[in-house]
Design a protein around this nucleic acid. Structure first.
Lengths: 219, 219, 219, 219
DNA sequence: GATGAATGAGCCTTCATTCAT
DNA sequence: GATGAATGAAGGCTCATTCAT
C-alpha cells in the first residue's frame, strides 16, 4: 500500500498524556491498522503513524511489537466480555430473554464494527501458532461458554426441547462465530443487521416455541 | 481431488522431477508450514526446508512468495470443491440426502485435517486485506452457496418447513465455518467426529422431520 | 584526593543539591556502570538509575553522554594524580623510598578497587580510537613519567646500577599497568596485595641492593 | 567518522567463495574495523564495507554481530597460540633460549601489528563484562602461563637465582602485556623494536647472568 | 533444472537527546 | 533544578529475491 493511501497523521493531542491515554491511543491505532493491513503486513511505523505518534513511543509504552499485539488482543477480549456480561445483567432471569440478549450482544454496534471484526480475524489466523493468542481468542472464554450452556440447559428444560444442551449451545456459538467470519470474508458482505437476523433465525429454528420466525421473543 | 488420489508426497529425489511434482511438493510443504508457523511467520526458507529442497527453488517454480501462497490457496480451494461436488454426485437426488452429503463432506478425513484447517485459518486471517484471498476463501465459492441454497429450498418446500431458505442455508453454512474455526482456536479442541455431529445436530434441529437427533437421515 | 576524603556518596535527596554534588553523584554512578556493563553497553538510563536520578539529569549536567564520559575520565585521572603526588610528598627525598612510595601508591585501596580498575580498562579499550581519551589514559601523564624517570635515574646513579634509566623506568611502569590489566582479565584474579607484591618483586629484581626479596626497602 | 574517511570498498573477489574464505575475510575486516573505530563504535555496516561485501553476508556467515566478534577473538587467540608454540618449538631445550623465544614471539611482526594490538585492546576493555571474552583474553591462556612458569623455574634453578618462580613469571608476563598496552595508549607510541627491547631489558635485569644489557643471550 | 551463497530493502529496537510540565 | 514522556536517527537482523556455478 503506497504511503499516499495512508490516512494523514492523526491528532495526538498535547505532548504529554497520562500513561493509560497513550496506551489506549496506540491500541486503537493497532486495531485500525490490523484491519487495514492484516497481521502479517502490519508494521509499527504504520501503527504509530495512524496514532500520530513517533515510532519510539510504541516501544516505550509496550516494550515490543509482540507485546503491543498481545495487549491489543487482551483489550478486545475484555471489551467483548464487558459487552456480553453487561447485556446479560440487563436481561432479567428468563432463559429465553437471556439467550436473546447474549446473541444480540455479539452484534452490538460498539463491538461489531468492521475494524474490530477484522482485528479479531487477524488474531484468529495467528492463534494456531501462538498459544497466548489461542488462550484469549473469543470462543475460549470459558465463562462465556459455561454461561451459554447454562442458559440453553434451562431453556431446553423449561420448554421441553429434546437434545444435548452442550451441543446445542455449541451450535449457537459456532453460528455466531461463523457469521462473524462470514462478514469478513464475503466479497459482498452483508451488514450487522442481517448478520444478527441470521443468528436469531438459528435460535428460532432451534427454539420455535420461544423465538418467532424473525427472532423476536414470543410472549 | 481427495488427497487419497494424490501422488504420494514426493521425496526430494532425482534431480529432474516433472514440473508439477515439484510444484505439488512445495504446495504441500507450504500447507504444513502455514499450520506450524502461521501466515505472518512463514518463511520461504522454512517451506523449502520442509520440502527438502533448496532455497532458490520456490522462486524458480512460483516466481515469488506471494504467488506460492496464492497457488496454495487455489489448490486448497480446488481440493475443497472436488470434495463436495464428488460427495454430492454420489448422494442421489433427494434433497435431504444431498444436504447430509454436503455437510458430511466438509468433515471428510481427507479435507478436515489439522494441517489443512490451520492453513485455511491462516488465509482467512489475511483475507480481509488481500482481495485475491477473499475471492477464494471457502464461503465465497458462489457455486457452493447456490447449490446449498437450492437444496435447502427444495427440502423446505418438500418438508413443509417455513422460513427464508437463503437465510437458513446461511445458518447451515456459518455453522460449518464456525465449527471449523472452533476446532482451531479452542485450547482443548474436540475432534472431527464431534464437529461433524455438531453440524448434523444443527441440521436435525432445523429439519426435525428429516434428520434424527443424531443427524441420521430419517427414512 | 583519595576517596576517603570525598563527601559520602550523596543520596538522591533534596530536590536542590549543590551543582557539584550532583555531578559527582553521576560520575560515581558512571564508574560503577562502566564496571558492570562495559563501555559499549553502558547507557545513560543505566547510569541515572544507578545514581537514583532521572533520565534527563545527566544531559542537564553534562550536556551529552560523551561529555559525561570525558569528565569521568578526567575525574579518575585527577584522583590518580592526587594519589601518587600525595604519596610521593610523604616519602622523603631518598630515591628508593620515593620509588617504593610510587609503586605502592598504585595499589592503594582507595585507587585500586575492582570498580575503578574496570572503569580504567573500559577507557583503555576505547582510547585507541578517541584522542581525548588517549591523552588522559594513565600512562600518558607526562609528569608521572618524568617523575618516575627522575627517581629511577637517581636511584641507578646512587646504587651503581648499569643500564638505560628511561627504559628501566618504562619496565617498571609497564609492569604496573600489566598487573592492573591482569587483575581485570584473569578469570580467577588475584588480589590487590598479591598484585602489589608482584610489582615490588619486579623492583627488587631490578634494584636488589635497595629492595629485599619481598619488596621491603633495605635499610 | 564521516563516510569519506572510510577506505574504498575492498575487492571482494569472485561472487562465490568457499565458506572459510568468506569467514576469514570478514574476521580480518572486523580486526581492521575494531582498530579504526573501537569496540563501542564498530558497526556491521563498517565491517562489511571494509570487506567489500554486503551487510547481510555477515549475518549469513556468523548469525549475529556478537558471534562475529567472538569468532574474531577466537581467531586472534588461536593465532597468538600458534605463534608462541611455534617459536618455542624452534628454540631448543635450554631454558634461557626458550624464554628469549617466548618473549620475542610476542613482538613478531605478524602478531604485533598496530591493528592486532588495537583489536586485542578492544576486547580487553570489554572482557570484564563478558565472560566469554574474559576466558579467551591473552593472559588466561593457561597453557601459556604454565609453560612460562616451567621455563622460569628451570632457569632460576639452573642459574641459581633466588625468588618465587611463579611471581617472577608473572612479572615477565605482565611486563609484556603492559608494554602492549603502552604501545596502544601512548600518544607518541614507540615501535615494535623498542617494545621488544623493553621486555628483554626486563629479562636482563632479572636474569643478568643469562641476558646481556641489550637482551642478547649471553654465551 | 537445481543449488545456496550473496544482496539489499525494510523492519524492529535501542537510546541519546529534547522539552513541556 | 528536576522529571520522564516523547522524539527520531541509527543499528542489527530478517528474509524475499537474485544469480553464478
Amino acid at each position: 500500500m503506497p504511503p499516499d493511501d495512508l490516512p494523514p497523521p492523526a491528532e495526538a493531542g498535547p505532548r504529554k498524556q497520562p500513561r493509560d491515554t497513550r496506551r489506549l491511543q496506540l491500541i486503537e491505532a493497532t486495531i485500525r491498522t490490523l484491519a487495514r493491513s492484516g497481521f502479517a503486513r502490519m508494521t509499527l511505523a504504520e501503527v504509530t503513524r495512524a496514532a500520530g505518534l513517533s515510532q519510539g513511543l510504541a516501544n516505550f509504552h509496550f516494550a515490543s511489537k509482540e507485546r503491543l499485539l498481545t495487549e491489543t488482543l487482551l483489550f478486545l477480549a475484555e471489551e467483548y466480555r464487558l459487552n456480553w456480561t453487561g447485556a446479560l445483567a440487563a436481561a432479567g432471569s428468563a432463559p429465553a430473554a437471556q439467550l436473546e440478549a447474549l446473541l444480540r450482544a455479539d452484534f452490538h454496534p460498539a463491538i461489531c464494527t468492521p475494524e474490530r471484526l477484522a482485528a479479531w480475524c487477524s488474531f484468529w489466523g495467528e492463534a494456531q501458532s501462538r498459544p497466548i493468542y489461542q488462550e484469549r481468542c473469543g470462543a475460549n472464554d470459558d465463562t462465556y461458554i459455561a454461561t451459554l450452556e447454562g442458559i440453553v440447559s434451562r431453556l431446553m428444560a423449561e420448554g421441553g426441547y429434546a437434545g444435548n444442551p452442550q451441543r446445542v449451545a455449541r451450535v449457537l456459538r459456532n453460528s455466531v462465530e461463523g457469521t462473524w467470519l462470514d462478514m469478513m470474508t464475503m466479497t459482498a458482505p452483508y451488514g450487522r443487521e442481517e448478520a444478527q437476523a441470521t443468528v436469531l433465525t438459528c435460535a428460532s429454528l432451534i427454539f420455535p416455541r420461544h423465538f418467532g420466525p424473525e427472532g423476536r421473543l414470543v410472549a
